[in-house]
Amino acid sequence: MKNNFLVGDLVELTPVNLEKELPLWEKWDHDSDYQRQLNIIPARQLSATSMKEWFEKDSPNSALFSICERKDGKTIGFVELDGYEWTARTAWVGIAIGEAEYRDKGYGTDAMNLLLKFAFRGLNMHRVNLSVFEFNKRAIRSYEKCGFKYEGTSRELIYKEDKRWDVLNMGILQRDWEFLQTLEK
């Protein structure tokens, strides 16, 4: 029997299939723009072996999923919930659509909603945090669609290209996300 807990309209969240997906991660990471939208730390090139070590660190405080589009079953990106804090019941989310042709078409929003479902209905989290770079307008729009609220700005946290950039901080509470679910569908 298949449990459809993490299946949405456009995508499904699945465990990472290392053998199949490591080459995809390598391809995505070779695009420096991709890394610069995702990480504050300097963009770098990790070997498949180093990446594998990172993947295989099974942490009780995080969950990493591949985002698979449902039509062809193609892996288009990843989404991760990490940094669980079990007293306030908070966690952090990171998401990326590595396959460029799937950006701006609702796949990321659908995947984020599934991750929020995992966080709130699966883990009973109280709150989910995220940070997004000021130049990533597409992501900001997507997060707002999922119900994330803007809570402030970390000024000049990023220093790249000899310029300083802000990072926007957003968050969503379990009760607010559940309320949105009663409005939609």
């Binding site: 306030a88 709150r127 809570e151």
Partner: peptide
């Protein structure tokens, strides 16, 4: 800069 609602316990 930022006020994270109900993030601490």
């Amino acid at each position: 800069e930022t006020q994270r609602a109900e993030a601490l316990f």
